[in-house]
């Protein structure tokens, strides 16, 4: 555990909680892509199956349970409790264009051809692109609520911090994982355009709106 890893985890946790609280407090999931949230629930489910097979630490187990629990709670709020506020017409990204290629890639490029290992790889690849339906939705409506941009910033920052964590681990532990690194770079790059808008607009007190 190094400082980048810990702050990355906390940034990820902050993102998840911000989104849950935003929906709960406003009693609305307007502007939130339910499809991205289903993909994140799928990511956590396929990655954390090792909860049943191995124990790493109390921290590890607790965080996994919190992430999974929050992911399913978010999906429940969007598709059940506050379904009337869900903006399905603008959430029109075709997720099969992500899930099918990612599934194929995880079968082809993995560390070990075993069910758990393929599912872990699938979760890493899927996480890298799971935010696309949300970014697509924002580009379609041309705007995002400020609280939604805080969520996206924390979510993007998390993987960027993990990149520094992996650099740290390579130098101090001689340890790297090419699958995670390549997927993590892709994931972080997808946020770059958003990071730019966040710094130039939201942090200066303006609402995030895209030119028509």
């Amino acid at each position: 555990m190094n400082i980048f890893r810990l702050t990355g985890d906390l940034s990820h946790l902050a993102a998840i909680i911000i989104l849950l609280l935003k929906i709960w407090k406003s009693r609305s999931c307007a502007g939130i892509s339910g499809k991205s949230q289903i993909l994140f629930a799928l990511v956590f489910t396929t990655r954390y199956l090792d909860l049943f097979t191995s124990f790493i630490s109390l921290y590890n187990t607790c965080m996994k349970l919190i992430y999974i629990g929050c992911a399913y709670a978010t999906v429940y709020l969007i598709y059940a409790k506050f379904r009337a506020t869900y903006d399905g017409n603008h959430d029109s990204f075709r997720v099969e264009f992500l899930v099918v290629p990612v599934g194929g890639l995880s079968v082809l490029i993995n560390h070990d051809f075993s069910p758990l290992e393929i599912l872990w790889t699938f979760s890493i690849y899927l996480e890298s692109v799971a935010i696309l339906p949300q970014l697509f939705m924002i580009s379609k409506t041309g705007e995002a609520e400020t609280i939604t941009t805080h969520y996206l910033f924390c979510l993007g920052l998390y993987r960027a911090l993990y990149l520094f964590n992996w650099i740290w681990r390579f130098y101090f532990e001689g340890f790297f994982d090419m699958i995670a690194i390549v997927a993590g770079v892709v994931q972080t790059v997808l946020y770059c355009d958003f990071f730019y808008l966040y710094v130039t607009k939201v942090l200066k007190g303006k609402k995030l709106s895209l030119p028509a």
Partner: peptide, 10 residues
């Protein structure tokens, strides 16, 4: 370096 899984990460 070793190319192995980051199973201790989240």
């Amino acid at each position: 370096g070793t190319d192995s899984n980051l199973k201790d990460e989240l």
